[in-house]
């Protein structure tokens, strides 16, 4: 598997706190990589560095073999890197379909004042993306009237509408109630696999991680403490004690 995303020796400290302390990581094309770890371990920092919001003090990030550090988020989007946010970033005054159409327009030509946002081709594509996510019925709903689970899905749908090759998701299921959570992840994984998108996601729910990640990277104090297939990593007593916070005696997979 060739690496689509490679991080080499990333270092970034905020005052005395090391958010990245020598991160080396390769993410293969088509892979689903979960990032787990305690709060403050630098998980979001990694996403922010990869998507152009933070610049590391040392190291390099290669995307598709080319260095991308220093490129603005705007440029990274055009290279095929998408992201969703821990707090969904939707245009609240617009309908769900309009949110999607804005993404499609951003890809296809944003600057003509004479082309309506809701022109049939863009409208249809927006509906098609929503249908893939199974939320076509929300198409006319105003984005600020959605519940948390739906907002998460729409936020990711917007990222997908930009047709990325790599998508970074910061806690795609946080704030979503238990029963909805698995349904959301199921949908998400199906859509992303179908689209052949490589995904890196920060996740706290070990059930989600165990079920959907190809590999898991465990973050601890700005370093990768463990990396490997979920059943291996999640079975590691040190990971279970320090990251997941349960006694090594319990079985993590009991619920899954």
């Amino acid at each position: 598997m060739t690496a689509l995303l490679s991080a080499r020796g990333l270092k970034l400290a905020f005052g005395g706190v090391k958010a990245a302390d020598g991160i080396d990581l390769d993410v293969g094309a088509g892979e689903f990589l979960a990032i787990i770890g305690p709060n403050g371990a630098g998980k979001t920092t990694f996403i922010n560095m990869t998507t152009g919001y933070l610049r590391p003090q040392a190291g390099a990030i290669l995307y598709d073999g080319r260095p991308i550090l220093g490129l603005a988020p705007r440029r990274l989007v055009t290279l095929g890197i998408g992201r969703s946010f821990q707090l969904p970033q939707l245009f609240g005054e617009h309908s769900v379909a309009e949110n999607l159409a804005l993404a499609i327009a951003a890809r296809e030509g944003f600057w003509s004042p004479f082309r309506p946002l809701m022109r049939p081709v863009w409208r249809d594509e927006a509906d098609e993306v929503l249908a893939r996510f199974g939320i076509l019925d929300l198409s006319e709903t105003r984005a600020d009237a959605l519940n948390e689970g739906a907002r998460k899905l729409v936020d990711i749908a917007v990222a997908v509408a930009l047709r990325p090759r790599l998508i970074l998701m910061d806690e795609p299921t946080s704030g979503v109630a238990g029963a909805d959570k698995m349904a959301i992840v199921e949908t998400l994984v199906r859509v992303l696999r179908d689209a052949g998108v490589t995904a890196v996601f920060v996740e706290h729910d070990m059930e989600v991680v165990g079920r959907f990640a190809d590999r898991v990277a465990v973050w601890a104090q700005g370093r990768i403490a463990a990396l490997g297939p979920p059943d291996e990593v999640l079975a590691d007593p040190a990971v279970r004690r320090d990251v997941i916070g349960i006694d090594p005696g319990e079985d993590v997979h009991a619920a899954a």
């Binding site: 998507t51 603005a72 988020p73 705007r74 989007v77 998408g82 992201r83 946010f85 970033q89 939707l90 245009f91 609240g92 005054e93 617009h94 309009e98 159409a101 804005l102 993404a103 327009a105 951003a106 944003f110 600057w111 003509s112 004042p113 004479f114 082309r115 309506p116 946002l117 917007v158 990222a159 930009l162």
Partner: peptide, 20 residues
């Protein structure tokens, strides 16, 4: 148009606009 619709996006969510 997208350009006009994006005005309210400037008001609420510049981050997302940039990341489009």
């Amino acid at each position: 148009s997208p350009l006009g619709s994006a005005l309210s996006a400037v008001k609420t969510r510049e981050t997302r606009l940039e990341f489009m």
